[in-house]
Design a protein around this nucleic acid. Structure first.
Lengths: 118, 118
DNA sequence: CTGGATCCTAACTGATACTG
DNA sequence: CAGTATCAGTTAGGATCCAG
């Protein structure tokens, strides 16, 4: 997703703003993938994410991680190792996104059945 | 959103595919807005959607509606009126997306509090 | 009223190479 | 190892005008 537009004059404004925010926070080709990896597999390093996020380039991964960090969804910690390593982990706050992802997966699964059934 | 990439070798593939599908179905700057309008306000005509979707252009609205229809999330019915009118309504299947939208709104609301609290 | 056709731009994405 | 820099391609989205 990108910048979401949704100013319907007839609907509750606060909820719409919240919806917009949520979508924008999670928009991006890889955000869900990264979040899913992080809370399925736990803390990961840049390199690990490069490997599990099949096809991503360092530049893009870097950008996605920065955006997630700005939005307090993940933490970035630099480790005192010989070759410097960096660990990424989701914040407690980001656990809320699990509900979103689960809802999306549920919907996706049902939709797949629907399509296949045709 | 656009074409979502998420082929993590370490995660359950079917769920990831479902996630990808769901995101792609709902991607686009206005999809959520249109769906929200349709199941908050009921069946609407093209003109109505133009008005409630503040700032959308007919071309974009048309495209979004077509995509939603292709994915069986809305129905399009042409009415036998003097100047032709067209009604759009969500399908029963699309009601599943409410869970997604609600989850997004919930997350968005919590996130706003988090940010404001700082 | 309901769109389709054109043109255009900004943003996202990718490939490649390079640095602390 | 963990990125940044540069360059180039694609595309979603908007402006405007036109048509059934």
């Amino acid at each position: 997703m990108t910048a979401v537009k949704c100013e319907s004059p007839k609907l509750d404004n606060e909820r719409i703003l919240a919806l917009k925010d949520a979508i924008e926070l999670l928009s991006g080709k890889w955000k869900f993938c990264i979040l899913l990896n992080l809370y399925s597999l736990g803390t990961m390093r840049f390199k690990d994410l490069m490997e599990t996020s099949n096809g991503i380039t360092p530049k893009v991964l870097s950008k996605e991680l920065q955006e997630l960090e700005e939005n307090l969804l993940i933490t970035r910690t630099v480790n005192n190792t010989k070759p410097v390593t960096v660990s990424y982990a989701i914040t407690p706050h980001a656990i809320e996104t699990q509900a979103v992802i689960n809802a999306l997966i549920e919907f996706g699964l049902k939709h797949r059945k629907k399509i296949k059934g045709k």
